[in-house]
Amino acid sequence: MEKSLPTTKCRACPLRHSEYFRDFNPDQLAFMSDFKSGELNVAAGTSILTEGFRNANLFTIQSGWAFRSKTLPDGRRQIMNFMVPGDLLGLQGSMFDEMQHTVEALSAVRLCVFERRRLAEIYTQHPTLAFDITWLAAQEERILDENLLSVGRRSALERAAYLLAFLYQRGKNAGMVGDGRMTMPITQQHVADTLGLSIVHTNKTLRKLADRKLVRWGERGYEILDEARLMELSGWEGLPEIERPFL
């Protein structure tokens, strides 16, 4: 990872100007400006956090995509969630001695960096921000519940429809969709590792969605063609339309 100077001041943070994110009040903004220690530019494919290791920092994604995964000793990987701008990384490492999962950059990612040792200041000085951290953790749990439902009960076609619709809505809410379209840099191997399917089964399943004119696959990822039908196929009602916090 390449560390850069904190060129983006908190008052000029692009996330503050999105209608999807709740803005800070003046006291919170002043604290966050002091709490932030820098920024990182991370290349696609780089591990931001590594399972089994400690890390001195917390991160908020300012731009780009990342994903969280665990790997078995024989190399089999399970992707548990994908992260977008506004998501907080490394909180688990603040509560335990070492990370229990890996976070990898799916695309080029820009991160805001915070020193983990100062996390207690949020709880003692800014209880509203502390509640925001709790909200972010609860949101992660909610997402994992839905993913577990997919792996346990949805058919392969329903799983794929849910995942692609879910990623599209997350990207849309984070301002990553332009002209109603979002091309996400995800491969069929990423999809297979998320859905718990073989790459062959995944390929056949995604081809069925493409044949139904629901998605289009290209060299740089996939494009959603019919979000409503994907949601209907998966039995998923979509993400709640609420203003969410970020650090």
Rank of each mutant, 00 (worst) to 15 (best):
F114W: 10
W135Y: 11
V151Y: 03
C112M: 11
F114I: 05
A108C: 09
T128K: 04
A105C: 02
D145A: 09
T134W: 11
E140Q: 03
R153Y: 13
H126C: 10
L144D: 06
D132I: 11
A137Q: 00
R154N: 15
E141Q: 06
V113N: 05
A137S: 04
A138N: 15
C112W: 13
R118S: 12
T134H: 09
L149N: 14
F131D: 08
E115A: 15
I122R: 03
L129R: 04
S150K: 04
L119N: 03
C112Q: 10
P127E: 08
A120T: 05
L148E: 07
E141W: 02
H126S: 14
E115K: 12
L106I: 14
I133G: 09
E141Y: 08
R116A: 06
V113Q: 12
Q139W: 01
V113S: 09
T134A: 07
H126V: 05
Q125G: 04
V151M: 08
A138K: 13
L111G: 04
Y123K: 06
G152W: 14
L149H: 11
L119F: 06
D145Y: 07
W135M: 11
D132Q: 11
S150W: 02
H126W: 14
A108N: 11
R142Q: 13
W135L: 06
T128N: 01
F131E: 12
L119I: 09
T124K: 03
R118V: 01
R153P: 00
L129K: 09
I122L: 10
C112I: 05
R110M: 03
G152R: 14
S107I: 08
L129Y: 07
N147A: 13
L136K: 05
L144P: 03
A137R: 00
F114N: 02
T128Q: 10
L129S: 04
R153N: 09
F114S: 06
A105R: 03
V151W: 04
R142A: 12
T124N: 08
F131S: 08
T128Y: 00
I143P: 01
S107R: 05
L106N: 15
G152F: 13
R117I: 02
L106M: 15
V113T: 12
T128M: 01
A130D: 10
E140W: 01
Q125K: 13
L148P: 00
I133K: 06
L111K: 12
R116G: 02
L136W: 01
A120S: 11
I133D: 02
R142E: 12
Y123F: 15
L129G: 08
L136F: 02
E141N: 10
L144Q: 04
A120W: 05
T134D: 02
A108Y: 09
I143D: 11
F114H: 06
Q139M: 02
L119H: 01
L111D: 12
V109W: 07
L144T: 11
I143K: 08
L119K: 07
H126F: 15
I143W: 04
F131I: 08
L148K: 05
A138S: 15
E121F: 09
W135G: 02
T124S: 13
Y123H: 15
S107E: 08
P127Q: 14
L148H: 10
F131G: 02
